[in-house]
Amino acid sequence: MAFQILLNFFLAFVWMFLSVSFTSQSFFIGFLLGLLVIFAFRRFFNSRFYLLRVAAVISLLFLFLKELIMANISVLKTVLKPKLDFQPGIFALPTELKTDWEITLLANLITLTPGTLVMDVSYDKKILYVHAIDMPDVDEAINEIKDSFEKAIMEVSR
């Protein structure tokens, strides 16, 4: 991915030198033309066309913001309820993500999800220990959310 972006910048500079105008406008035009060229030659790269990955990153960002707002609504409900009748607990969550940065991102996402907080990661990086504020109704639903998060992160890193 980084190679494709670098190549795109390089093509933009080549365009600036070809048209002998060194302005941000001609850089932008060159960047768009380079994007077209890279799109046309996408089957010669090892990874995917990089705009797809940029789109995945942006959708992950929006997922982050949405979850943050949902989490706050659920915290509001928990804190302001007159009776403290929730049942907290810690559950183990197996994960398929491999590299460190993916697991960090997943842990941050889980921490900002309604009702969950990452407590620990096992040394072989296969299990996340998550503290849930309300075990009975969270357990199943959370696992579904995790699937969507893991998918979104894999969409970026794949």
Binding site: Q87, P88, G89, I90, A92, M119, D120, S122, I127, Y129
Partner: peptide, 10 residues
Amino acid sequence: KSVRDDLKGK
């Protein structure tokens, strides 16, 4: 009132 503690099994 906590119901479960998987971290104990870590």
